[in-house]
């Protein structure tokens, strides 16, 4: 990706500071994602990964610093307005709507786009990636297994037809076979042109599919670079890959 340095990133976090009351969760974080990339944000529990995604989505607002989307500041917007711009998120813990059917969950994902043809196209694409969702489309989402719920969460986020998809620990608490299905789907979605910011603790899997990676520790980026290089970095291997 040599064009990176010359083009405007689709997403840029500049000196991002976020507080929860007195708790200073992010200390001047900088991050860029370019169109077409899978960027992964790694870090252990409590590092500030979800805080970063929640700030991009507008659920939190920075005390200092900026969130730029195509170069334009968006950190003053509310969450529903950020979705309208083309950024959607499958949040940590999935947060699917348990009393709505799988299909209704996907309808909610497409809440802002009344375009029926687009809905149909995205829906068919999602059930081709996750055929289980088709079988379960009329079932209440709360009755699904954890892995299936994660598929719903991802598909629901995709139904907003985003340019940038934020995924918060999609492999958390999920059976290993389904983890593979989910990471395969991430690669597929990215190949269709959607830029992806993937937050994970599962560093090995993420680095294998990502183009670039950032490592977050207690609210600050401590390492960044090409995913392949990080995968072979002894320090990373020791800290995150269990070597």
């Amino acid at each position: 990706m040599n064009t990176q340095s010359t083009s405007t990133p689709i997403l840029e976090l500049k000196n991002l500071n976020v507080h929860y009351g007195a708790i200073h969760a992010l200390h001047g974080l900088n991050l860029k994602a370019y169109k077409g990339e899978i960027v992964t944000l790694l870090g252990s529990n409590g590092a500030g990964k979800s805080t970063t995604l929640r700030t991009i989505s507008g659920l939190l607002h920075p005390s200092k610093g900026e969130v730029l989307f195509h170069g334009n500041p968006i950190h003053h917007l509310s969450a529903h307005e950020v979705v309208k711009l083309g950024i959607s998120q499958a949040p940590e813990g999935r947060l699917i709507f348990p009393d709505l059917t799988v299909f209704e969950n996907l309808e909610m994902g497409a809440f802002l786009s009344p375009d029926k043809a687009l809905f149909k196209k995205n829906y068919e694409y999602m059930i081709s990636l996750f055929p289980r969702l088709k079988e379960r489309s009329k079932q209440l989402a709360g009755t699904l297994s954890g892995g299936e719920q994660q598929m719903v969460a991802m598909a629901r986020a995709y139904m907003a037809n985003p340019e940038l998809l934020l995924l918060d620990e999609p492999s958390m608490g999920i059976a290993p076979i389904l983890v593979k299905a989910i990471f395969d789907a991430i690669v597929q979605i990215n190949k269709q042109g959607t830029t992806i910011l993937l937050v994970e603790q599962n560093a090995f899997q993420s680095l294998k599919i990502a183009h670039r990676a950032y490592v977050l520790a207690t609210g600050d980026i401590v390492m960044e670079g090409d995913a392949e290089k990080l995968l072979n970095n002894p320090e990373i291997q020791k800290a995150y890959l269990g070597h």
Binding site: S78, A79, H80, V83, S88, L95, P98, D99, A157
Partner: peptide, 17 residues
């Protein structure tokens, strides 16, 4: 449906737009 979604989790509903 949006009412039910909001009632389940307000932030998740916001993330739907």
């Amino acid at each position: 449906k949006a009412m039910r979604a909001t009632s389940y989790n307000l932030e998740a509903a916001e993330l739907m737009g």
